[in-house]
């Protein structure tokens, strides 16, 4: 479903020096995979996730989604891919503070569904399913951190994307909440979504079927090919 071929990303710092973030990374992801990319801060995890999610152009290499190089498409096509095929979950939730939980979840669906009513109904169903039925009208400030992250996860899946990308989704959560959220990702994975989580915590990474270690922009425990790496994955 997704393939990264020799992807590199370089940034230019304030002193106009070129700093490599990702170096010649290749990765193959099949539909239904649950992958963790684990590494210390500054290892390039989030950069890799943004490249996979059609948000950041790589300096070199190809990113193929369903066989099409997404960075050879127009920005509007990439926006459509993000809207319909990819769901993002962030460490800091990135909920819109003045919208209710229901509206936050419904926003992406309003652009893909025929009516606002359908989008809101679907958002309500999702929130209900994720145990937030009593929090529909609550705003960001009225939700606990665990609830915020669950709202963000609902938003990421409302358009039923093939791929869910989570950037340190448990970074702000306590252990109990961490388990709850990661169990949700497992559930989503079982229901057919491909999930890629980046984290710096090994315990969080262990929820995935496949764990890839990233250090200084390079995978240190494999090439990203499932056939070679799955055997070493912690289930």
């Amino acid at each position: 479903m997704l393939e990264l071929r020799n992807v590199s990303k370089e940034f230019v710092n304030n002193r106009r020096e070129t700093v490599p973030a990702i170096s010649d990374v290749s990765l193959s992801v099949s539909a239904g995979d649950f992958i963790s990319i684990v590494g210390p801060s500054g290892s390039g995890k989030s950069t890799l996730l943004f490249i996979i999610g059609a948000l950041m152009n790589p300096t070199e290499g190809d990113v193929l989604f369903r066989g099409r190089n997404i960075y050879e498409t127009s920005p509007s096509v990439r926006a459509k891919i993000r809207l319909e095929e990819v769901g993002f979950v962030f460490q800091t939730f990135n909920l819109i503070p003045y919208l209710s939980a229901l509206d936050n979840v419904a926003v992406p669906a309003m652009l893909t569904m025929n009516s606002r009513k359908d989008a809101v109904e679907r958002a309500a169903d999702l929130l209900e399913r994720f145990g937030l039925g009593a929090r529909l009208d609550h705003r960001f400030s009225e939700l606990s951190v665990g609830e915020r992250q669950r709202v963000a996860i609902c938003r990421s899946v409302i358009n039923n994307p093939a791929l869910i990308l989570a950037d340190e989704p448990t970074g702000n959560l306590d252990p109990a909440m961490t388990h709850e959220v990661m169990a949700l990702f497992q559930e989503l994975n079982k229901s057919g979504h491909t999930v890629i989580v980046v984290t710096h915590e090994e315990e969080v990474a262990a929820y995935a079927q496949r764990v890839l270690h990233l250090r200084d922009g390079v995978f240190t425990n494999g090439t990203g090919s499932c056939e070679r790496d799955c055997a070493s994955t912690v289930a």
Binding site: L55, P75, S76, A79, I81, L83, N94, I96, V107, P108
Partner: peptide, 16 residues
């Protein structure tokens, strides 16, 4: 700013 970043990341086009 974060809202714009978020809206762009979830696929809302710049013109919207």
């Amino acid at each position: 700013e974060r809202e714009i970043g978020l809206l762009l990341s979830i696929g809302i086009s710049p013109w919207r």
